[in-house]
């Protein structure tokens, strides 16, 4: 653990990634009812990085994202996005909720969903025009779904639905992408395609954060990790932070020691 991380652990400063970092979180607490789902979490995401948020089921990973974006009310804590409150940085942020969180029987075509990503661009009381449609088609093309533009969304496979969600986020042309389990229930080809798009976003200098479940792919896909189990366990480069000790602390008894060994961690 480097010195900056140590300083962050003491809770005094967390803006180790810089004042205008894509995300700086101090003491974020979100509660459903009496029990906090996320308790006093700090995080600091530097620009141009690709971070996995890791933790067991019910650890508050999705809630952390929603709390950051104000989709669920925050009990306490401060969130800065590019150095400003989220309301001021909204246009620079794209959020991809869990695929299972929406009703795919909704009467809409693939292109309709992608056009939702252009909402801010289109503006209040107006409808989309040809230019918006072309933009949306370009985003669909980038995820390999251009041929499905007029398909009803309920007719898509899970992987195709996830690609459509990613295309909607691409349409937002954001600098900071937050994705909630983008690889859940998708086929191998889709996973590959999504990773390629996310890595190209990072290579363009944009910032990516994913809630991620598959520990075996963390070192391949992500350069940073944020380990959460209601509280923040650890945060930092994958190389130094994604260690058996930290995973054991994050998952407790729920992750068998043999499973951790199987991951063949570089630092383990």
């Amino acid at each position: 653990m480097n010195s900056a991380e140590l300083i962050a652990e003491s809770g005094r400063i967390v803006d180790v990634a810089g004042k205008d970092a894509p995300l700086t979180v101090r003491g974020l607490t979100v509660s459903y009812g009496h029990k906090p789902a996320v308790f006093s979490v700090d995080a600091s995401i530097p620009a141009g990085s690709m971070t996995a948020i890791i933790g067991p089921n019910g650890a508050g990973k999705s809630t952390f994202l929603k709390g950051v974006l104000g989709v669920v009310p925050r009990l306490s804590g401060e969130v800065r996005i590019f150095g400003h409150p989220f309301a001021q940085s909204r246009k620079r942020v794209a959020y991809v909720p869990q695929r299972a969180s929406v009703d795919w029987d909704f009467p809409a075509r693939v292109i309709d969903v992608v056009l939702m990503g252009l909402y801010v661009d289109i503006g209040l009381f107006r409808l989309w025009g040809t230019r918006h449609r072309q933009q949306a088609m370009a985003c669909l093309d980038r995820v390999g779904m251009a041929d499905f533009a007029d398909r009803q969304i309920g007719q898509l496979s899970g992987g195709q639905q996830q690609r459509v969600f990613l295309a909607r986020a691409l349409a937002q042309n954001a600098d900071f992408y937050l994705l909630d389990e983008p690889f859940a229930g998708v086929d191998a080809a889709t996973e590959r395609a999504i990773v390629d798009v996310l890595k190209s976003l990072r290579d363009e200098g944009r910032t990516v954060v994913c809630v991620h479940h598959d520990l075996s792919t963390v070192t391949d896909y992500f350069d940073r990790v944020l380990l959460i189990n209601v509280r923040r366990i650890a945060e930092g480069p994958t190389l130094t932070t994604f260690t058996p000790e930290n995973l054991q602390e994050t998952y407790g008894g729920r992750l068998a020691a043999t499973h951790i060994d199987e991951l063949r961690l570089s630092a383990g």
């Binding site: 929603k66 974006l69 104000g70 989709v71 309301a87 909204r90 942020v93 959020y95 991809v96 909720p97 969180s101 929406v102 009703d103 909704f106 809409a108 309709d112 969903v113 939702m116 909402y119 801010v120 909607r168 937002q172």
Partner: peptide, 16 residues
């Protein structure tokens, strides 16, 4: 209405 009916979390995040 369309966006928030389909995906309330996304709608909230884009400022609706």
């Amino acid at each position: 209405l369309k966006i928030s009916t389909f995906d309330a979390a996304f709608a909230g995040a884009i400022g609706i």
